[in-house]
């Protein structure tokens, strides 16, 4: 593994004094795809926003470090962080159509990022934008350059957004559920595109999702989050081969299988994610966990190395394989 592009250390974010992200640490290496998975409200998006240095107004960066290469983003002034945004770190969202300004031509929006970060003349910017459109697989890039978002399909808008994000060749791309709004065929194309661009440019990708299918297809490593913490983290093959946290195991068991018996009730994880600020004492998963005992209620398990590689935070990691 080369030097990490992104290092998040013991990140803590609070909203109104209540923690929403509580001691999250992970690293992403160059050209690596790290997938962060978890249910809604577990702190995935907050973690992403804090890496961009753009938390919502109510949220506070309480503790921890976010390092891009060897630059501490928290130590930079806002102006310095702004220079990195879109240049070295870029982000794409899940609403491709709404993420493009309806009154601005596609080409202009892609060029805008160049206008912010690079001082190049308009002709060159236009060539770069058209080349980028071609690179993300948009047919007839010259035509699309002069069109407005409403003239493009959702999949093409997502490609255009990826073009916007990648035109400055960022070291890190944060993709916050980039395929949620797309149908499966387009979803597969977009994922394929992201993998290809990763190969070509060496961009590291932090892929935030709750779709285990996307994870299996894309990720090199997986970090599973629950209630503001990373509870298990390992290379993707290892995660699918064996889990050492009950939540990960239950999460994987909820995926419907093609070879499963027909007309069975789809498995679910009992209960709901606890609300912010009402996290249970001890292991935060204990109210929903089939392995929970008095030890789990009393104290919170630390992340400890898994049997193969990676880490998991469970007191009974040896018994997780026996669930179900």
């Amino acid at each position: 593994m080369t030097d990490p592009v992104l290092t998040v250390e013991d990140l803590k974010i609070t909203i109104g004094g209540k923690p929403v992200v509580d001691g999250v640490s992970f690293q992403v290496a160059q050209g690596e795809i790290l997938s962060v998975v978890g249910e809604s409200g577990c702190g995935k998006s907050m973690t992403a926003f804090s890496i961009m240095g753009l938390l919502p107004k109510a949220a506070r960066f309480a503790a921890g470090r976010v390092m891009l290469g060897d630059v501490d983003l928290r130590a930079l002034p806002e102006s310095g962080r702004r220079k990195l945004r879109g240049d070295e770190i870029a982000m794409i969202f899940q609403e491709p159509v709404a993420s493009l300004n309806p009154l601005m031509k596609i080409g202009r929006q892609i060029e805008e990022n160049l206008a912010i970060h690079r001082h190049i003349d308009p002709g060159e910017a236009k060539r770069a934008a058209i080349a980028m459109l071609e690179e993300v697989g948009i047919p007839e890039p010259e035509l699309r350059y002069g069109q407005y978002p409403f003239e493009l399909s959702g999949g093409m808008c997502q490609r255009a957004m990826i073009a916007m994000a990648l035109i400055c060749r960022p070291k890190l791309l944060i993709a916050d559920e980039p395929t949620t709004a797309l149908d499966v065929t387009i979803q597969a194309q977009i994922l394929e595109l992201m993998k290809r661009l990763r190969e070509e440019t060496g961009t590291a990708i932090l892929l935030i999702t709750h779709d285990m299918g996307v994870v299996a297809d894309m990720a090199d490593r997986v970090a599973v989050m629950y209630a503001g913490r990373v509870i298990e983290e390992a290379p993707v093959g290892n995660i699918f081969a064996g889990q050492e946290h009950p939540y990960t195991r239950l999460l994987l068991s909820t995926i419907p299988r093609l070879d499963g018996a027909p007309k069975t009730i789809l498995p679910t994880i009992e209960g709901t994610v606890p609300d912010i600020g009402q996290w249970p004492v001890g292991c935060r998963f204990n109210p929903r966990c089939p392995l929970s005992d008095s030890h789990c209620v009393e104290s919170q398990p630390p992340l400890t190395p898994r049997a193969d590689s990676g880490n998991a935070a469970c007191w009974h990691s040896d018994r997780v394989g026996a669930i179900l």
Binding site: L54, R82, R85, F93, L100
Partner: peptide
Amino acid sequence: MPYVRLSRFMGAG
């Protein structure tokens, strides 16, 4: 709107 957010995330002032 997401497009304003996106532009901010791209480093726009």
